[in-house]
Amino acid sequence: MRKLFLILSILSICFGKVRVVTSTTDLADIVKSIGGDHVTVISIARGNQDPHYIEVLPSYMIKVRKADLYFMVGMELDLWAKQVIDGSRNQKIEVVDCSVEIEKMEIPAGTVDASMGDIHRFGNPHYWLDPRNGILIAQLIAEKLTKAEPRNSDIFQQNLNAFNHQLDKAILDWQNRYTNLSGKKLIFYHNSWPYFSNRFGLETVEFLEPKPGITPSPAKLNRIIQRIKSDKIEVIASESYFSDRVPKFIASKTKVKTVKLAQSVGAIEGADSYIHLFETNLKILSKAFGVEHD
């Protein structure tokens, strides 16, 4: 009898869970925070991968085959997700675009074409790098989890409240502790950081890529070296998946410091959760600018 009870308990736990797949680790971490033990979640992209270019592997389709929900970044960042979802043959899956409630930045005006590089028609898609947008994403995730498993709606709501509270508190703390970063000028490798910079008052003066997705040419590097010298720019920051070669070459010609930031959860050491991602990036930047808070 006890064995039967144990088996039934295990089965109810297994079958009561909402099966979730996300495009990125950031969305997966927020799903974990809201869903807790009542969800299973898998991210297709790893934290240290460029979410623009994920090689669609057939094994991803197996991960999505039995999922109830798929959370995608949207704004044409993870276009590959469609191929994964279609190939999974999953008819009941609900696909959720997490960008719907986001106030988008850098929506291009006029005609968009390939002469502008890998530009996104609907605006810059790296919106999760503003922690305030994390709250909007979490709200959407909680709604969808509740719809998928209404019996656990109270738990999801409690978890959402706890997540929002924790994130609100952290944002306030970061804005106090890292106030010295405000107004600091830096160069980014790729234009992944407008939401992050906007939130923490950083000033992006240049990108290493001449246009999104385009490798910097020697002429461009020369211009950047001159600009670093003339404007006394202190830091070049790049995403974890870019090679160090170009930033280090520039550093060898100037006194600029080069750092790698976490563009996603799991991209670098320390960025092991959505909240820790910001903490880690802010720490790295404040150290590079020499404005570390005790």
Partner: peptide
């Protein structure tokens, strides 16, 4: 046809 057919068929 990738979605909509039963038994994982395409």
């Amino acid at each position: 046809v990738e979605r909509g057919l039963p038994f994982g068929l395409g």
